[in-house]
Each structure stands twice: as C-alpha cells, then as structure tokens.
C-alpha cells in the first residue's frame, strides 16, 4: 500500500490513470452496447409512442415527465427494456404504496402495454433488453452448474432453494419458486430494488440460463422425503416436531393413562 502511495506522484502515474480511465469508459461502453446488441425484440415507433402516453399518465408522477427522475423515483434513462418488463410485468410498478420495498401484485398492464412501456424506456437510452428465448430455455441449461452459481451468488439472500429470506430493515428477498424464467433473467440482469446487478460479464447469458434451470429444477422436483415444510430448514422442522410431534405424543400419553369406563 505504501508502495503505491509513494509512487502516486511518479510521472508515469498520470499515464496509468489515463489508461485506466480510458479502459473503464471503453469497457462500460462495450458492456452496454454489447447488451443492447443482444436485443432481439425490435420495437416500432408506434410502440414507443403508445408507451410514452402510458408513461406520462401512469409513471411520470414519480419518475418525471421524461423519465429523468424526481425525488420520489429514480431516473429511468438507460435502465433498459428488461427493467421495465420486470418491474411492470411482476406488478411491482406502479408502486402501490411506499415502503421498504416494492411489493408483487397483480400486474396493472397487460403484456402489450408492458411491452409498449418497455419500448419507450428503451428509447431513452441504451440498456439491457428483454432476454431472448434461447436463454430462457431450461432444457438447454445445466442444473448442476446453475446450482453452484446459485449457492454462491443467490442463496445468501434467497435461501438455497429459493424460499426467500430477510434483508435489513424490513426488506426481503422474495421466494423464487413462482417467478417466471423471463423475470428471473431480468432480475439478474437489472438488479431490481436492492438486488445487485449480475451483468453478462459476471454471469454470462448461458450461466444465467443455468441458474434459471436450477431454480426450476429444485422448485418443481418433488421432495423425495415428503412434504417440504416450506423448505425453510431446521426452524420449520423444530416447530413441526414441537407442534405436531410432541402434541401427538402428549395426546397419546393422555389416552394411555385415561381410565376406561
């Protein structure tokens, strides 16, 4: 550390810094353009136009008339179609009420409207697009590789089988068993709420597909041991043994020692 601190004033430091900066900006550009070039869905001008109308009437209060963001909502420039498709498609947006985090509810817009909104937001600046079907096809994914990635990147918040878990101050990571493949992909790509973003350099589209395959596999496979008890681990098992097991045992002891007529 001292070594670096001393060399900070070295004449070469400026060059290194310049190079670094160039690399970073270039890299960021590459990532963004890389993502948008992966966009499969082509939006028409009328989609954008319809989307803008929907946006102004439903979203602008918080996100601003041209999605530039206000005190109550972030800027949507550059969040991409994937973010819109996820937030609106899962019913999180428009927000029902303010709270620690946006709640899932029945989506307010149908698929077409969601797509129009996505087209509008995508037109504001380059951002991740709605994923291609190829990367949502779990028959091509590797559940075992996905399992390793899931345990490393996702399990600490979502639990090892995606049952969900608590975050700080009332926030939580939701249960994943009912989430669609597309929304799983978009969540990884865009990092909704407090979830970190897993861009394509961190988890490649193939790896994302592996993760989705794992989530599908683990939530759709029946538990060989019987009822899953919520897949919540030892707490659920402990409660079950007290409130079912021991209750049954006490019932037996009472029956056993009751005097027959």
């Amino acid at each position: 550390m001292k070594l670096l601190a001393e060399r900070r004033r070295h004449p070469m430091a400026l060059v290194v810094l310049l190079l670094l900066g160039l690399l970073l900006t270039g890299g960021a550009y590459a990532v963004f353009t890389g993502n948008s070039s992966a966009s499969a869905q082509e939006y028409t001008a009328s989609d954008v136009e319809e989307g803008e109308k929907l946006f102004v009437t439903n979203c602008a209060t918080c996100h601003g008339m041209s999605a530039e963001g206000t005190e109550n909502g972030p800027s949507l420039v550059g969040v991409g179609a994937a973010a819109v498709d996820f937030q609106v498609g899962t019913g999180r947006m428009p927000l029902q009420m303010s709270g620690p985090q946006a709640q899932v509810k029945e989506p307010q817009f149908n698929e077409e409207e969601t797509s129009q909104l996505a087209a509008y937001v995508a037109s504001l600046g380059p951002g991740p697009a709605v994923p291609e079907d190829e990367y949502l096809d779990t028959s091509q994914g590797d559940a075992a590789a996905g399992g390793g990635l899931f345990r490393t990147n996702c399990a600490m918040c979502h639990n090892v089988v995606g049952s969900g878990g608590a975050l700080t101050r009332g926030k939580y990571a939701p249960n994943l068993s009912e989430v669609s493949e597309k929304h799983l992909y978009e969540a990884m790509q865009t990092g909704p709420q407090n979830m970190p973003i897993f861009n394509d350099a961190n988890l490649t589209p193939e790896q994302k597909r592996d993760v989705i395959t794992y989530v599908r596999e683990i939530s759709e496979t029946p538990s060989p041991g019987g009822a899953k008890l919520g897949s919540l681990g030892p707490v659920a098992e402990g409660l079950f043994v007290w409130f079912f097991g021991l209750a049954a045992v006490i019932g037996m002891t009472v029956w056993l020692s009751a005097r027959p007529k």
């Binding site: 670094l20 690399l23 970073l24 270039g26 990532v31 990147n153 990092g191 861009n199 961190n202």
Partner: peptide, 14 residues
C-alpha cells in the same frame, strides 16, 4: 479473471 470494466455500478462479484 475479472476486468475492472466488467464490474459495473451495482454489481456484486464473488
């Protein structure tokens, strides 16, 4: 390996 540019804002890499 990880390139600095690949770690975009909001990312968490293990």
């Amino acid at each position: 390996f990880i390139r600095a540019e690949d770690v975009t804002i909001g990312s968490a890499v293990h």
